[in-house]
């Protein structure tokens, strides 16, 4: 079971330069989703003319499913300068990986609730850290894509783009750097020093 909570509205709204395409995941019922708050926030954004379209569906972490839906809404996505995803960290990462040249942002933080994980499968992992970093890392989770879970950039251990811990794995921060360059957001690398708050990680024992 995990819970998502809305991030600070002003911070999220400030990420939108023109219009956002919004994706809501009401997927697995083991995710506690702040539906009412999200709907209210989205109505505010719409009345400010900041929304190009809204897609609400189940299991956006299922790549085939979401890929099909994204292709159906291509025009609205093209009209937007970014995609704002209201889901757990896995959902955001899935969308992000399918829209490589688009800025994809997380609107929620994902927390763990004792008693196990959601059914989310697959390629992307979310550790439910409670302070989602995806908006600072080009939609690539620094906690699960980097062997040391670094939140302030690459360590000195990458060789030929591979991680020092596991040469079969591409260095997560190499991917983050590339992605940020691709979406023109290298400026976030100058954001303030990040310090993890383990108090947010309810299931702190790993």
């Amino acid at each position: 079971m995990l819970v998502t909570k809305l991030k600070d509205k002003d911070t999220v709204a400030s990420l939108i330069c023109g219009k956002a395409f919004i994706i809501n995941c009401h997927g697995c019922k083991e995710v506690g989703f702040p539906e009412r708050d999200a709907a209210e926030f989205q109505r505010e954004l719409e009345s400010d003319g900041k929304v190009s379209g809204i897609l609400t569906m189940d299991y956006i972490c299922n790549p085939e499913n979401i890929a099909l839906n994204l292709s159906l809404r291509k025009d609205e996505i093209d009209e937007a300068d970014c995609v704002l995803v209201f889901s757990c960290g896995v959902g955001v990462q899935t969308v992000s990986s399918l829209l490589e040249d688009k800025r994809v942002y997380a609107a929620c933080d994902t927390y763990a609730v004792p008693g196990g994980q959601g059914v989310t499968p697959l390629e992307f992992d979310c550790r439910q850290c409670g302070e989602c970093y995806l908006n600072l890392t080009g939609g690539i989770c620094p906690l699960t894509a980097c062997s040391k879970g670094l939140v302030n950039g690459q360590c000195g251990g990458a060789k030929d783009g591979r991680c020092e811990v596991d040469p079969d794995m591409e260095c997560g921060w190499e991917r983050i750097q590339r992605r940020l360059a691709m979406v023109g957001r290298l400026d976030v690398l100058r954001s303030p020093v990040q310090i993890r708050n383990y108090d947010n990680e309810v299931n702190a024992a790993e």
Binding site: Q154, K159, E174, Q177, R190
Partner: peptide, 23 residues
């Protein structure tokens, strides 16, 4: 602090260097 000037990820290293200076 340290930096790796001959790294093949030189862009990421420079970005990190800048963060270290900021810190």
């Amino acid at each position: 602090a340290v930096v790796s000037p001959c790294s093949d990820s030189v862009d990421a290293q420079l970005a990190k260097m800048e963060r270290k200076i900021m810190a």
